[in-house]
């Protein structure tokens, strides 16, 4: 896949990191402000997508990236399930029980396991959307040959 002009590449380099940081902020403050795992994950996926669209890269690197994001996605959803079933061992015998202390409402470290769920779902959504886009790009590459 061919990249774009050098102006687009430079602007993308400058912007992509900021979009990534904004996504991380949305995820980690999901229990205090509007947002959460789904919105932040989609924003992180968008920051990765504009990097791929602007810089391109040959087929091998794209395939390698797809393998990595697919594995990340699987690991994230496995960790989500493990966290949920951890409550069966530690807390009372309830699936999805909030077993960590709640803390003070409004602090960054509060709300028990909800921030951890937010982070895991954010990783999962970002990796899934990135995998879907990369699958379309690889398909177009193989068709055009």
């Amino acid at each position: 896949m061919k990249g774009m002009s050098s102006i687009v590449k430079k602007i993308t380099q400058l912007l992509s990191g900021m979009i990534f940081l904004y996504g991380i902020y949305i995820i980690t403050h999901g229990h205090l402000t509007p947002g959460g795992g789904f919105a932040g994950g989609a924003i992180i996926a968008a920051s990765l997508i504009i990097l791929v669209l602007a810089f391109g890269g040959d087929e091998l690197t794209v395939v390698k990236r797809k393998e990595g994001s697919s594995v990340t996605e699987s690991l994230a959803i496995l960790a989500f399930l493990l966290f949920a079933s951890f409550a069966l061992i530690i807390g009372t015998n309830i699936f999805f029980h909030n077993y960590l202390p709640e803390g003070i409402i409004g602090n960054l470290v509060s709300a028990g396991v909800i921030p951890l769920y937010n982070i895991l779902v954010g990783i999962e959504v970002a990796a899934a959307l990135f995998t879907i886009i990369l699958a379309f790009i690889i398909y177009k590459e193989e068709i055009s040959k």
Partner: peptide
């Protein structure tokens, strides 16, 4: 008070209705 989350939508999504969120993921 039960979940400790200031954003009530996130509280409903990940605590009261965690099964829904897991199914969606």
């Amino acid at each position: 008070d039960k979940t400790g989350s200031a954003n009530l939508v996130t509280g409903v999504l990940f605590d009261f209705r965690g099964y829904d969120t897991f199914g969606e993921a």
